Structures are given as structure tokens and as C-alpha cells.
Amino acid sequence: QVNQQQLQQLMDMGFTREHAMEALLNTSTMEQATEYLLTHP
């Protein structure tokens, strides 16, 4: 289960819902999730 607010923040940054969910499931903080998305295009 992912934090919906964090998911929305990542989608607002331009990431897809699927990619943002993957990042949130594989990390524990927003900072890590953002870094994950930038390093796993």
C-alpha cells in the first residue's frame, strides 16, 4: 500500500502512476522515491 499523497506528488512531478507506485513500494522516503525514479527511467 502506498501513501496516496506521496503518489500524487510524484505524479504532479510528471511521473506516471505506475512508475511512481513502483518507486514508493521500493523505497521508504519521498527523497528515495524521487531518486529511484530519476535513476530508473
Score class of each variant (00 low, 15 high):
Gln6His: 07
Gln6Asn: 13
Ser28Trp: 01
Met21Arg: 14
Leu37Gln: 07
Gln6Cys: 01
Gln8Phe: 12
Leu38Arg: 14
Thr39Ser: 12
Thr34Tyr: 06
Phe15Val: 12
Gln4Ala: 07
Arg17Gly: 09
Leu10Tyr: 04
Thr29Asn: 06
Met13Lys: 15
Ser28Ala: 11
Thr29Ile: 02
Glu22Arg: 04
Met11Trp: 02
Leu24Arg: 03
Ala23Asn: 01
Glu35Phe: 05
Met21Glu: 15
Glu31Thr: 06
Leu24Lys: 07
Glu31Pro: 07
Leu37Lys: 11
Gln8Thr: 14
Ala23Gly: 06
Leu7Phe: 03
Gln1Glu: 11
His19Tyr: 12
Asn3Glu: 03
Leu37Tyr: 05
Ser28Gly: 12
Thr39Ala: 13
Arg17Ala: 07
Thr16Arg: 08
Arg17His: 06
Gln5Leu: 04
Met30Leu: 10
Gln32Asn: 11
Asn26Ile: 03
Gln4Ser: 09
Ala20Arg: 00
His19Trp: 12
Asn26Arg: 08
Leu25Asn: 15
Leu10Gly: 01
Gln5Cys: 10
Ala23Ile: 00
Met21Lys: 14
Thr39Gly: 14
Gln1Cys: 05
Gln4Thr: 09
Asn3Thr: 06
Gln32Cys: 05
Gln9Asn: 10
Leu37Glu: 08
Gln6Ser: 08
Gln4Phe: 05
Thr27Trp: 02
Thr34Leu: 04
Gln1Pro: 00
Met11Tyr: 02
Asn3Gly: 01
Asn3Asp: 11
Asn26Asp: 07
Gln1Ser: 06
Thr34Ile: 05
Glu35Ala: 14
His19Glu: 15
Asn26Glu: 08
Gln6Trp: 02
Leu25Met: 14
Gln5His: 09
Gln4Gly: 04
Leu24Gln: 06
Thr27Ile: 01
Thr27Gly: 05
His40Val: 09
Thr27Gln: 04
Leu7Pro: 01
Thr27Lys: 06
Gln5Tyr: 06
Gly14Leu: 00
Glu31Cys: 04
Pro41Leu: 03
His40Arg: 14
Thr34Val: 03
Leu37Ile: 07
Gln5Lys: 13
Leu25Val: 12
Met13Ser: 09
Tyr36Thr: 08
Glu31Val: 05
